[in-house]
Design a binder for these strands. Structure first.
Lengths: 166, 166
DNA sequence: GTTTTACGTCAGCCATGTTGACCAATATAG
DNA sequence: CTATATTGGTCAACATGGCTGACGTAAAAC
């Protein structure tokens, strides 16, 4: 922070606290994803495959363009990953009922199996962290993370939740 | 979670809560890093440069091997980034006083400037999130993130803090 | 004096992001 | 019905940032 010098103790703590947040995000994200990465590597997959599998599992029958909106990557990047997943039997597609241009994406049994394995692994890590930290901490954790989001992302998550509730 | 079926309400909420955590981590990390990425792109740098600059700034005079330990990448990957940063005048090195094989890394004025810009940007995002969420939430946030860390990482952070306090 | 340590470097591979251009099928508005 | 917009795929080319393996060099440590 260029404008915050460590003169008063309050200010010093403020900068330290912000840096701690930045660093915790870096380390926690790395460790949190690293565990799944090793399973994925066995299947000759990367994090991009994981993200696709996760969000297809979470939003069964999602269209390609909705998945693109969630992932914020180009359709060329996604296409490469998706064709791999379909070829290897983790994902299949059905044409949309009302709009037949759409290819609705679903996990196969194999895909569901892999998704479960990965999510259960990451879920266990979260469950342990939640247990250690306590219920109130979990609430705070979620509130701060929501505060870090771009407003577009907030809208997107809200919309996604709505879709799932139907 | 393969073993947690949405039969009882408590179990259902548990799985939803874990998935919410997983998703919030993904979205928050993406949005949190994305802002800095655009500044870095202007300077023809990537996230790898950012990480190096951040941790050199944070641990002025750090050795290459200690930086490697923090970043968990190979020396070849780091070397590519570091030589770029030195060539472009963001980082310089001094031989270690006691062990002259070591190359202690420091930010130049330019490097300090860029680090400030980036950290201040990310710090503002955190400050806003902290303000919205409240003091108790911040504590919970940090506790949960710590709980997500690998034990090696915890040791590492502790050691790093100690070094800085000297 | 030999071995270990702390670097550097070259060569090449892979995953995953990017842009730009172009094509096909279908939906929708005029 | 026709024109346009939307959904999605595809090819080519490129950058970044991981990786491995191999090899070199200077200095510390035994």
């Amino acid at each position: 922070m260029a404008d915050v010098k460590p003169i008063g103790k309050a200010l010093f703590l403020r900068e330290e606290e912000l840096r701690l947040g930045i660093e915790l995000m870096f380390f926690a994200y790395r460790d949190f994803t690293g565990e799944a990465d090793s399973i994925l590597a066995e299947q000759h997959m990367g994090r991009a495959h994981h993200r696709a599998i996760y969000f297809i599992g979470r939003n069964s029958g999602i269209t390609v363009s909705d998945l693109l909106t969630i992932l914020c990557i180009t359709k060329q990047s996604l296409s490469r990953v998706l064709s791999g997943l379909m070829q290897d039997g983790y994902v299949f597609q059905k044409p949309g009922a009302t709009d037949r241009r759409q290819r609705l994406l679903y996990l196969t049994e194999t895909g569901i199996g892999l998704e479960s394995r990965l999510t259960s692994l990451q879920g266990r890590r979260f469950a342990a962290a939640y247990r250690e930290a306590g219920v109130d901490a979990v609430d705070g954790f979620q509130r701060v993370l929501r505060g870090l989001l771009d407003s577009d992302t907030i809208d997107q998550i809200a919309q996604q939740d709505q879709t799932r509730d139907i």
